[in-house]
Write a protein that binds this DNA or RNA. Structure first.
Length: 568
DNA sequence: TCCGACACATACGT
DNA sequence: TACGTATGTGTCGG
């Protein structure tokens, strides 16, 4: 691990997964960085209709629930899958439809390609893109990469059970087949309408349906990882697009709740009795259960630009979000374990200057350079809340992942809809209710204050098409191209042995594994995404501002009671 | 105290 | 069932 330079373009030592021809890093390089005030841009189809992106993501390995906190270990791997789709649209929309966006200046830009990436965000320092590394299966002996940024089309998130079942496959045939679930085949990517988005995707780069991140670690190499001071993170999925001019823009983000990343130091166990932490070797590193535990965090395209206009609170983005993610995601743990209150915990850990814990204060104060002390002091009482609008997109992404990977609904290899994450399939009702509510309220706002611009960005996670989608007949769901030929069947000694019948049997057994059936992946248990709650709260504020002016009662008064179901 | 490097144990795929 | 591999983590030393 240590001492190795992060590689972004090498394909050496990767597993025997099916891969596209090597390509240059520049094809994956993110374009110019955002200006600090840039924000999430809307997406429109060629007809001018607004389409709402929904990000679905889940961690299948590497994080544990402990005393109400999410815990990860720097030494251990974590895994994550992410996909996106457009609300109410088929996942094959990119083969028939094109998209454009409109920037802050009102300028229209054609979208040539969608991209999706995984980024880290350090709540203690506000740093992003500095800590994640991806290993190959060779671990210390292999190279390390920055997490890749995928060229991606809409897709369906595979279930935890499915991901579990393919976590360690080594059979080349299975790997090949698996690869075809996660990436468009040659045939699929060649079947599109000339005016569609898919026509403008890079020809020489893979196109993913689902972004798969395996063997990920929070790097211990980073110089920024100072003495356990930076240990609270969020993982952020960003849906981006590449414009015709080559620039990259942000379209939506989804993030985890606060993750407490433990290193090997006893400092990372401050919420435990020191003696307890030191009982275990290597400073309390706990042996982890080998069972993969799922962790879900769906969603969000959100924004608050409207509130700036309506309420005149230009800085409200931060205020609106501040603390809310943390509070909501940890609401239950707070009542049960005060010591694990993320804010209290953070105050101790990230405030060396004010810490009442001699060990921490002593260590950090001694070793932190002045500049770092200055940086650390800001987080004495609160974390640096992640602001998706203030991201830097000039972070290189490795073009490679360690494994190929995602299931389609059904194909010639027998993948079934049960391998799609059930949570992904259950979003419709909740989200449709929210969407209807949103439209209703927006209409009200226009009536109440016609001279105001109430162009609210929809913050709700949106849904997959349930019945009217064309997935079943989509070119995205066809068999892999014959040109790929029949994979050579070899035994472990390299002999061509397996018969076709044997292969079928093997695949059937694989598909019938108990773990393959979908299981609950409700990781954040309806608390994951606070964007809808924020949205509703903010609408209420708008209502409160407007209602007195108009002096009329409004259905808006009942907004908070309109929808009482789970938000996500 | 941190962390790279190596070693070992165990689970799992074939 | 043997074998090889992936991964969690124990340990040493700089």
């Amino acid at each position: 691990m240590g001492g190795k330079v992060l590689q972004s373009s090498s394909m050496a030592n990767l597993p025997t997964a099916k891969r596209a021809a090597p390509r240059s890093l520049t094809q994956f390089k993110i374009g110019p960085p955002f200006s600090p005030t840039s924000s999430v841009l809307p997406i429109y189809s060629s007809t001018g209709a607004r389409v709402e992106p929904v990000i679905n993501a889940r961690s299948d390995r590497g994080f544990d629930r402990e005393d109400g906190d999410w815990i990860g270990y720097k030494r251990n791997y974590f895994a994550l899958v992410a996909s996106f789709h457009f609300h109410g649209q088929s996942v094959d929309i990119c083969s028939t439809e094109s998209f454009y966006t409109v920037d802050q200046e009102g300028e229209k830009h054609q979208i040539s390609c969608f991209k999706l990436g995984l980024f880290d965000y350090c709540l203690d320092t506000g740093d992003t893109g500095k800590f994640l590394v991806q290993h190959t299966s060779k671990r210390d002996k292999g190279p390390q990469f920055s997490p890749p940024v995928y060229n991606i089309v809409p897709g369906q998130l595979p279930s935890h059970g499915f991901m579990k079942s393919i976590a360690n496959i080594r059979n080349p045939n299975r790997i090949d087949k698996c690869y075809e679930q996660f990436y468009l085949t040659e045939k699929e990517r060649n079947e599109f309408e000339s005016s569609s988005a898919l026509a403008s995707y890079p020809e020489d780069a893979e196109i993913a349906r689902v972004a798969r991140y395996e063997r990920m670690q929070f790097s211990t190499v980073s110089k920024h990882f100072v003495l356990g001071c930076n240990r609270k993170f969020k993982l952020v999925i960003r849906l981006m697009c590449e414009l015709e001019n080559g620039e990259t823009r942000l379209l939506a983000t989804s993030e985890t709740p606060c993750l407490n990343i433990r290193g090997r130091s006893p400092m990372n166990y401050v919420s435990e009795a020191p003696a307890e932490a030191n009982k275990e070797n290597d400073f309390g590193q706990k042996r982890k259960n080998a069972e993969m535990s799922p962790m879900e965090y769906s969603t969000t395209s959100f924004l608050v630009t409207a509130f700036r206009r309506v309420q005149g609170q230009a800085q409200n983005r931060f205020n609106v979000y501040s603390g809310e993610h943390v509070d909501r995601s940890n609401s239950r743990r707070r009542t049960q374990h005060q010591i694990s209150d993320p804010n209290i915990d953070t105050a101790l850990l990230s405030s060396p200057m004010e810490s009442s814990t001699p060990r921490q204060g002593h260590i950090v104060t001694l070793k932190l350079p002045v500049s770092k002390l200055k940086d650390a002091s800001f987080s004495s009482n609160q974390l640096q809340e992640h602001d998706p609008a203030k991201v830097k997109l000039n972070i290189d992404g490795s073009p490679m992942t360690s494994m190929p990977s995602t299931p389609r609904e059904s194909n010639s290899y027998g993948f079934r809809s049960s391998e799609i994450d059930p949570a992904f399939l259950q979003q419709d009702n909740t989200v449709n209710d929210a969407l209807e509510e949103y439209r209703k309220v927006q209409q009200e706002l226009r009536i109440l204050a016609p001279d105001q611009d109430f162009e609210l960005d929809l913050p709700v996670p949106l849904t997959v098409p349930s019945t009217n989608g064309t997935s079943a007949n989509s070119s995205f769901f066809r068999s892999p191209p014959a040109s790929m030929g029949e994979p050579e069947r070899l035994c472990k000694h390299g002999c061509k042995m397996k018969t076709e019948e044997h292969d079928k049997q093997t695949n059937l057994q694989w598909m019938n594994l108990p773990g393959v059936e979908s299981e609950s992946t409700s990781f954040f248990e309806n608390n994951t995404d606070s964007s809808l709650m924020r949205f509703r709260n903010s609408l209420s504020k708008i209502k409160a501002d407007i209602a007195p002016v108009t002096g009329e009662s409004s259905p808006l008064s009942d907004f908070s009671n309109t929808y009482t179901g789970p938000l996500w």
